[in-house]
């Protein structure tokens, strides 16, 4: 039996600001992982990635990142994605400061 597909989100960096963005269901970009479209089907995930890559004047380096599904929505599966979602640990800068 094939291994179950790990849920994913489409993410990358915004062209102008350079910060982390995620693709939403309605084809906008969000700075908040909890608003991202969670992709649970592999074929659909590939299509969504291609669509994101087709918007090079908005996003740089689009890729699929693994997530876990919690009650509150998607959570990063890897610590690298956790840092991308939060910002650096030495200063209160980046996403964590924007949310505050």
């Amino acid at each position: 039996m094939a291994r179950p597909f790990t849920p994913k989100v489409v993410t990358g960096n915004a062209l102008l600001e350079g910060d982390v963005i995620y693709l939403t269901e309605d084809d906008t970009w969000t700075r908040d992982l909890s608003q991202a479209e969670v992709l649970t089907d592999e074929a659909h995930a590939q299509v969504r990635l291609l669509e994101a890559q087709g918007r090079p004047s908005e996003i740089v380096g689009a890729y699929l990142a693994d997530v876990r599904l919690d009650d509150d929505g998607p959570e990063p599966a890897h610590f690298r994605e956790a840092f991308r979602r939060t910002g650096p640990s030495n200063y209160f800068h980046g996403k964590q400061a924007e949310r505050a």
């Binding site: 960096n13 350079g18 982390v20 740089v60 380096g61 840092f83 991308r84 980046g94």
Partner: peptide, 13 residues
Amino acid sequence: RLMNGLYLQLHAY
């Protein structure tokens, strides 16, 4: 951009 020292990192340029 790399010729001019500009990288894109985790959170920003």
